[in-house]
Amino acid sequence: YWITCCPTCDVDINTWVPFYSTELNKPAMIYCSHGDGHWVHAQCMDLAERTLIHLSAGSNKYYCNEHVEIARALHTP
């Protein structure tokens, strides 16, 4: 949970406070499906809480801010 998930990541173990109602003692993470995949903080991706809950409940693929354009290009005929 205490990783630098992207170039603009500002989640710090020493200063972090809950942002989403689902967070208690660690930041919400979401899995990016690009390549071998990697974890990113939901807050760093500017996800709305409703979107985070929807993604967490389903089996939808998610692409982080850095990889979403690549994913779109691969799926565009």
Rank of each mutant, 00 (worst) to 15 (best):
S33P: 08
A71L: 13
E66G: 12
G58A: 10
W39D: 02
D12P: 03
Y31I: 01
L47Q: 06
H34W: 06
G37M: 01
D10Y: 03
A48T: 13
M45I: 02
D36E: 04
N25L: 14
Y63H: 12
F19C: 06
T51N: 06
T15H: 13
Y1L: 09
T22K: 14
Q43K: 15
P7E: 14
C64A: 00
C6M: 03
R72Y: 04
S56R: 12
I30R: 04
N60P: 08
C44S: 00
W39I: 05
L52I: 06
I70E: 09
V40I: 09
W16L: 03
A73N: 06
E66W: 06
K61C: 09
C44A: 00
D36N: 06
P7V: 12
D12R: 15
W39A: 06
R50D: 11
C32F: 00
A42K: 03
A28N: 14
D36W: 05
T4V: 08
P27C: 00
R72W: 07
C32Y: 00
A73T: 13
L24E: 15
C9P: 00
D12G: 11
T4D: 11
A73I: 10
W2E: 05
H67K: 03
A42D: 01
N65T: 12
E69G: 12
G35D: 08
C64L: 00
A57H: 14
D12M: 12
I70M: 13
T15F: 14
S33R: 07
E69V: 07
Y31V: 05
V40W: 00
L24A: 07
T51W: 03
H67Y: 02
S59V: 09
N14D: 15
V17F: 15
T76K: 14
E69M: 15
D46F: 05
H34C: 04
F19V: 05
N14T: 13
L52D: 04
D10G: 11
A57F: 07
H67N: 04
S21V: 04
A71W: 06
R72S: 14
D12S: 05
C5R: 02
A73K: 15
V68Q: 02
S33A: 14
I13T: 04
H54T: 08
D46H: 09
P27D: 00
T51H: 12
I70W: 07
T4C: 08
N60Y: 09
D10S: 08
M45A: 07
H41Y: 01
W2I: 04
L47D: 02
R50C: 15
Y62M: 06
K61S: 08
T4P: 05
T22L: 06
D10R: 15
K61A: 13
H54P: 12
G35N: 15
Y1C: 13
E69R: 13
D46P: 05
M45R: 01
T51I: 07
C6R: 03
S56C: 09
A42M: 04
P77N: 04
R72G: 13
C6F: 04
A73R: 12
C9G: 00
H34D: 09
T51V: 10
E49A: 10
T4W: 04
W2Q: 03
N14A: 02
Y63I: 13
H34Y: 09
E49K: 04
I13Y: 15
G35L: 10
I30G: 01
E69Q: 15
T51P: 06
T76V: 09
T4G: 10
K26E: 08
C44D: 01
L47T: 09
A73M: 08
C44Q: 00
D12Q: 07
S21M: 04
L52F: 06
P27Q: 01
E66Q: 10
A42N: 00
R72V: 11
L47H: 05
A48P: 13
M45E: 05
H67A: 04
P27S: 00
D46L: 13
V40L: 10
W39C: 03
S59L: 09
L74Q: 10
N25K: 15
D12C: 00
E49F: 07
Y20H: 07
L47R: 03
C32M: 01
F19P: 02
P18S: 03
W16A: 00
C44F: 00
L55P: 05
Y62Q: 04
V17P: 03
L47P: 01
C32K: 00
Y1Q: 04
T22G: 03
Y63D: 06
T15V: 13
T51D: 10
W16M: 00
T22R: 05
G37R: 00
C6L: 04
C6H: 01
S56M: 13
H54D: 13
L55E: 10
L24M: 04
T76M: 11
R72P: 12
L24K: 14
V17L: 10
N65R: 14
P7W: 05
S21F: 07
